Amino acid sequence: MAAGGDHGSPDSYRSPLASRYASPEMCFVFSDRYKFRTWRQLWLWLAEAEQTLGLPITDEQIQEMKSNLENIDFKMAAEEEKRLRHDVMAHVHTFGHCCPKAAGIIHLGATSCYVGDNTDLIILRNALDLLLPKLARVISRLADFAKERASLPTLGFTHFQPAQLTTVGKRCCLWIQDLCMDLQNLKRVRDDLRFRGVKGTTGTQASFLQLFEGDDHKVEQLDKMVTEKAGFKRAFIITGQTYTRKVDIEVLSVLASLGASVHKICTDIRLLANLKEMEEPFEKQQIGSSAMPYKRNPMRSERCCSLARHLMTLVMDPLQTASVQWFERTLDDSANRRICLAEAFLTADTILNTLQNISEGLVVYPKVIERRIRQELPFMATENIIMAMVKAGGSRQDCHEKIRVLSQQAASVVKQEGGDNDLIERIQVDAYFSPIHSQLDHLLDPSSFTGRASQQVQRFLEEEVYPLLKPYESVMKVKAELCL
């Protein structure tokens, strides 16, 4: 049975990233139509530049190519590739079939990587351009969430054990800070992308030097003109047959890092959902379990974690691919890159769409948070109580021993009897502590235990987050809708 299948058929496997999760716009960027249309555009740009620099290419040939950029006979191309065992030459023939007058000058002087690699770089750039505003929107939604809850005390956790208090907004800023680093890295790697350009079979530009009869300047002009037509500021000066596969490492490393950030955020949300302090959106008709109707599973956060793990592992592909590119190139890269580049971007696209949807509907339960604080705060307040007693004339050592005994009794009630923490009640009825009984409410005010959390939130948002989001103001209103 021949390899390949009808990918629109229910009898043929289709990647869930495309069929179930990723956005239509990201799927289109990695589609065959987008790819092969870009090949034709690159052939047109090459012909236009070659004509401008004096090669015998007519206006009629150029116009014929322009008129057929979208006229792609995919069936013919597939048949040609089956016959020739070469995808680029299959599309040269297919393009030439609908451009008979231009057929002889299509791909003039070029090698397969002229269309293959340059198209990949265009796709990487455009895919990054799709991700950047999506990530900015996630940051914006979380920034709104953090600002609104900047002063809401909550129990902090280290080692997932109760620690000092923080605020809900401050905790959210930990998430935002990681995503801001990801946004900066995505922008950097996007701006650092260079075009492969017009380089020939081993990167020496020998074929173009021959076409222009040894004119170095025209060869350099050709490279520059096509690079500018493709919208790049610069091209690699040095290439082998391909652009260095280190570029793929750079791009997928940034995406993998984004995956790590999203995994951490969504894990926190899942843990908070278990504590009943916070939940992701839950639709009115949504079913959490087929057997347990009360369940409210954090399905979206779980999906993000599941896909983020996949995204983090994909960076190993370009690392290994770059390491086995012998001399000017081997074909070890080809099949692998067809999979890992598309999957990385479709996965990143999915987790950003999902995280935006989550961040637009996060639900906080202040009463649950308050109750958990009441359970733990008495123990945390013991040092403040000791200091207040010393100020009232008591002995630190005597007070410490009193607190120690009462704390152990209260802990026994919590752990052995399943009761509430009654340390404060014990202190309130103990005559030894009568000098500070009137101060206990103040000493137990949760806001006095959150330090500068709310001020940190305000400063972080104003100095770091809002300036970073400013270039994306025009796209901030787009909502994230999930079908599944």
Score class of each variant (00 low, 15 high):
448 S>G: 13
426 R>H: 15
167 T>A: 03
422 D>G: 08
145 F>N: 05
430 D>Y: 08
159 H>D: 00
393 G>L: 03
345 F>P: 04
338 R>P: 01
67 S>P: 05
281 P>H: 13
80 E>G: 07
63 Q>E: 09
384 N>T: 08
225 M>C: 01
221 Q>I: 04
401 E>C: 06
318 P>L: 01
396 R>L: 02
63 Q>W: 02
299 M>N: 09
101 K>S: 02
144 D>Y: 10
286 Q>T: 04
266 C>Y: 14
300 R>G: 15
98 C>N: 01
167 T>V: 06
412 S>I: 12
280 E>L: 00
189 V>I: 08
329 R>I: 15
132 L>P: 12
293 P>M: 03
105 I>R: 12
433 F>K: 08
384 N>A: 12
340 C>R: 07
392 A>N: 15
90 A>L: 01
470 K>V: 10
114 Y>K: 01
471 P>W: 10
431 A>R: 15
341 L>K: 15
330 T>C: 09
25 E>L: 08
187 K>L: 05
263 H>Q: 13
7 H>L: 13
419 G>R: 01
96 G>P: 02
18 A>S: 12
448 S>P: 10
202 T>E: 03
279 E>K: 15
110 A>I: 06
102 A>Q: 05
436 I>H: 09
196 R>I: 02
436 I>D: 03
48 E>V: 06
162 P>H: 10
326 W>I: 07
15 S>G: 05
271 L>R: 08
357 N>A: 14
458 Q>F: 01
465 V>W: 11
440 L>V: 14
293 P>C: 06
179 L>R: 03
262 V>W: 08
241 Q>E: 02
307 L>A: 13
237 I>Q: 07
380 M>R: 11
457 V>D: 06
106 I>K: 00
281 P>D: 00
284 K>S: 00
331 L>A: 15
209 L>S: 01
298 P>V: 06
158 T>H: 01
255 L>V: 08
183 L>T: 09
269 I>Y: 04
3 A>D: 14
328 E>F: 10
156 G>L: 01
323 S>N: 07
220 E>L: 10
351 I>L: 11
261 S>T: 12
277 E>L: 06
330 T>G: 02
117 D>Y: 11
112 S>L: 03
217 H>S: 05
173 C>Q: 01
97 H>V: 13
184 Q>L: 09
145 F>L: 13
467 P>V: 15
152 L>R: 04
340 C>E: 02
468 L>R: 04
